[in-house]
Structure formats: structure tokens, C-alpha cells
């Protein structure tokens, strides 16, 4: 299923998922909106988004596949409250859908959540559907 979906169709479904999971209005869900900063997502909301995407698109998402687990506690990635260049490189490889521009400008560990925009979720779904 899903392989013939257009990007607009994927975006529309992702928007519905985010409206339901985050209790935001449709017009707030723009491609550049950041899930945490702009749409108010908290940690449990990321699991809610994963569950709803699985149901909406009919695929399974492994733990850590869309959103990373416990980056803050990972000494391989974080030093003195900042994500190291090696950490960013590793995250980029694990999360090719995410948007790292913010984190590269300001690698504070608190900014890790900001690598997930609406567009990054759409890109993730596109990759999962094999486009």
C-alpha cells in the first residue's frame, strides 16, 4: 500500500496525525514547524506520533527509527551539555530524515528535539514507503 501516494497526500495524512496527537490546529502544521518548539510536543507525544503514523500508513516503526532514544544520556554523542561533531554525524546517519541545521548552528543538547520538523516527518514517511 501507499507506494502510489503523492507528497501532498503524505503531508495531509501526517498533518492529521499531528493534529490528533498534539491537539493543534491544521493551519499550525506547516512544513517548517518544529514539533517541540512550534507544536508543543513533549516526550510522550513522540511515541503517540509513532503509534499514529503506524496506524495511518500501515507500517511498523522500530524504537529509535524516527526519533532517537536518550541522546542526552549517551556519552558517545554528548559532552558538557553539547552534542559533539561525531555525535551529530552519528545522528545524521541514523536519522537521515531529520533537519540538522539548527543543531549544527547551536549544538546544545536541549536543541536535539528541534531537528524534527513537520517536513522531516513527511520525509521519513516517504523513505518508509520507498519513494
Amino acid at each position: 500500500m501507499g507506494t502510489c501516494m503523492t507528497r501532498d497526500e503524505i503531508f495531509a495524512k501526517v498533518r492529521t496525525v499531528l493534529v490528533d496527537a498534539l491537539a493543534v490546529d491544521e493551519d499550525e502544521v506547516t512544513p517548517s514547524a518544529v514539533l517541540t518548539r512550534d507544536l508543543g510536543a513533549e516526550s510522550i507525544d513522540f511515541l503517540d506520533v509513532v503509534f499514529r503514523l503506524e496506524q495511518a500508513f500501515g507500517f511498523k516503526i522500530a524504537q529509535g527509527e524516527l526519533f532517537p532514544d536518550n541522546v542526552q544520556q549517551d556519552s558517545r554523542y554528548v559532552k558538557d551539555g553539547r552534542v559533539t561533531p561525531q555525535g551529530i554525524a552519528a545522528l545524521k546517519e541514523r536519522l537521515p530524515h531529520a533537519d540538522f541545521a539548527v543543531l549544527e548552528r547551536d549544538p546544545q543538547v536541549a536543541k536535539v528535539g528541534e531537528i524534527f520538523t513537520v517536513d522531516s516527518v513527511v520525509r521519513f514517511v516517504e523513505r518508509k514507503l520507498g519513494k
Binding site: I44, L47, D48, F51, E54, Q55, Q63, D69
Partner: peptide, 10 residues
Amino acid sequence: LRQFDGAGAS
């Protein structure tokens, strides 16, 4: 039970 994985459940 709707969904269940290692991280949690809905």
C-alpha cells in the same frame, strides 16, 4: 489495547 511496544502502549 491499541498499540504496544518496548517504549509504551496506547
